[in-house]
Design a protein around this nucleic acid. Structure first.
Lengths: 196, 196
DNA sequence: GTCTATAGATCGATAGAC
DNA sequence: GTCTATCGATCTATAGAC
């Protein structure tokens, strides 16, 4: 049965997400208009509202999708070894996952202010779950005396901040390969949490 | 000589900067209107243009003032001691300076996208000068073999990212004092750049 | 599902009176 | 230096035809 002329639900939806993701990352949520998104998708502005009830929901969906994909990708990893080995796997996973999704990462950090309170709480809880995964590794290592940190919570936030910072400067094709970056950061993280 | 009625140049100017700083940090540059700034300052929107040619210049002035104050505060420090001691002073200085200016720091990182290309270049150059100050310390330490990092440039960016991350979670009156935070981060940074 | 058209509000910036 | 008033553009979101 032929589809109604001009009906492209199966491709327009994903295209809206992709275009909004890129534009929000590039110019910021507040600076991007629905008309601009529509133009780059190739539809009229009104058509966007077949896919999102409003602009806020569009932002929230992008951020929530990113955070749940981050969590499920981490949980799918078959973690093996002692605390030191699991920490190394976290460092590699974090850098790899984040470098492969620069726009999503950028939005997830920069647009928290533009979420409604309820949406903000939901995203922050997902972020808390991810941070908790790292803190559990650090705590285990401290218990086994293979790590020594003054405060596992702060060490968690410190390590994640350091690792996520890679996204601000790394450019594919630059001086360092992704594997080299992973090695360099692992060296610094490994020593930062090691006993004296 | 009596001043013209309604003329308050000496207090309106600083108030505009203070209000704009707070609102830009809270809601983002693009989401804040000139009318909103004027309302909280206590003047009409048109009066703002006696103090700034346009909204962009207002943002740029805030960011440039912050970066130049950061640099001059660092340069005024009388650095003493070996590389290890100078690194410790950098860590303490960075945390202290940034925790005392949360709105300025937030804007300086989050609103880079909203600068015109020329203004962006100028801010990035100032940031580069600050990063260079840390890298010089790290290089000196590597030369003296008191530090061992795989790459001084990346170590610089990694340390700054870790330290600046404090601003995302630290709240005055929370679990840790500012001095405790400085001690904890110094412990991690010290080990991260130390030889094995 | 997409279109055209538009309601209704708000924006940055300017002009001119005082 | 501040005010009132406004231009011209742009915004989100909706209504109704196809």
């Amino acid at each position: 049965m032929a589809r109604t002329q001009g009906s492209h639900s199966d491709i327009t939806g994903p295209r809206i997400n992709a275009v909004a993701l890129r534009l929000f990352a590039q110019h910021g949520y507040a600076a991007v208009s629905m008309r601009q998104i529509a133009r780059e998708v190739g539809v009229q502005a009104g058509a966007l509202y077949n896919y999102t009830p409003d602009k806020q929901s569009l932002l929230f969906r992008l951020m929530k999708t990113h955070m749940t994909e981050l969590l499920s990708a981490w949980r799918e990893l078959d973690l093996s070894g002692d605390a030191r080995e699991r920490l190394k796997q976290f460092v590699q996973f974090h850098i790899r996952f984040h470098l492969n999704r620069p726009d999503e990462v950028f939005i997830a950090y920069m647009e928290l202010r533009n979420l409604t309170p309820g949406n903000f709480t939901e995203i922050e809880q997902l972020r808390g779950e991810y941070e908790n995964a790292l803190e559990m590794i650090l705590k285990a290592g401290v218990d086994e005396s293979v790590f020594a940190v003054p405060d596992t919570k702060i060490a968690t936030l410190g390590v994640i901040a350091m690792l996520t910072g890679v996204n601000t400067w790394y450019r594919s094709g630059g001086r360092l390969s992704q594997a080299e970056v992973e090695t360099i950061y692992w060296d610094m993280v490994r020593k930062a949490v090691a006993p004296d």
